[in-house]
Design a protein around this nucleic acid. Structure first.
Lengths: 144, 144
DNA sequence: TCGAAATAGATGTATATACATCTCATTTGC
DNA sequence: GCAAATGAGATGTATATACATCTATTTCGA
């Protein structure tokens, strides 16, 4: 065990949560000057990939409770980044990026990219790829 | 991309956070009958491994802001699980498990173990080991 | 030695997260 | 066709998380 950091705890969840906190702090720090969090940027990115999508489906994609999304979308809507229209099924909200949301996404993109690139360089492309595979496999294994 | 779940987002942090949410939900669900969260159990486990430790050092071990720990420890202290005494340096708090904390940890341990074992079986021991390595490597790479 | 700088943790505030429960809309069984 | 069951999302509440700032203590430099 190093002075400042133990190699591992016995719990996979604890270790994953620790890595998640560390990474989140790093990304949030990089995005702070742009007044957006990695949580919010992730939603911009997801919407930019999916196009129009219901809140429930977006929650599924992010393995996030749909009611959590309600709160975060409220914050993002205050910034004018989100379009939310009732669908043909009028219980559901059909979400998409507003023009301001697209602009915001484009503005933040290079900062996000720089942060990813730094981390990728530090880990090496092999470890990076393995990591991406592994964590997505976990998410899958847990979800279904 | 499956119907209910996309293989991957382009952002490492987004994917790690997604896996973290999914895993946390799974562990929390398993521990719910015992009235404890995986966050709190992780602190019991960490204290059981370290013995007496300062709040700052514990925060370092968990890659968690020390002030975050203040809030979670307050909840755990209400349950009587935590001993907190001033150290020789009287700014710092020297934390350890109370007898009730040790009992709680022992009581929860088998439930945590069962959850881990299920997940490990599902992932396979190779993937499990790779995953543990990879995520701890990320935490290290980000932290120093 | 004494004042300045640094450090440990507490507190105020904002976001992130999920569950229980509620409302309203849709689907389903008869 | 209608009552019951289901489903989508909103709201109340509790925990998790971090940053800015504050207080109390310690350390450090002249």
């Amino acid at each position: 065990m190093s002075r400042t950091y133990p190699a591992s705890l016995p719990c996979l969840c604890a270790n994953l949560r620790r890595a998640s906190r560390a990474l989140t702090q790093r990304y949030d720090q990089a995005l702070r000057p742009l007044d957006i969090t990695i949580t919010q940027f992730t939603i911009l990115q997801a919407l930019s990939l999916t196009g129009v999508v219901s809140q429930g489906r977006l929650a599924e994609i992010l393995a996030m409770d749909s009611t959590t999304l309600t709160r975060t979308l409220a914050i993002m809507s205050k910034h004018g980044w989100i379009l939310s229209e009732p669908g043909p099924d009028r219980r559901e909200r059909r979400l998409s990026l507003s023009p301001a949301g697209r602009r915001k996404f484009q503005a933040v993109l290079p900062h996000w990219q720089r942060t990813q690139a730094q981390l990728r360089a530090r880990l090496g492309p092999d470890r990076w790829g393995d990591l991406m595979n592994a964590i997505n496999h976990v998410a899958l294994a847990v979800t279904d």
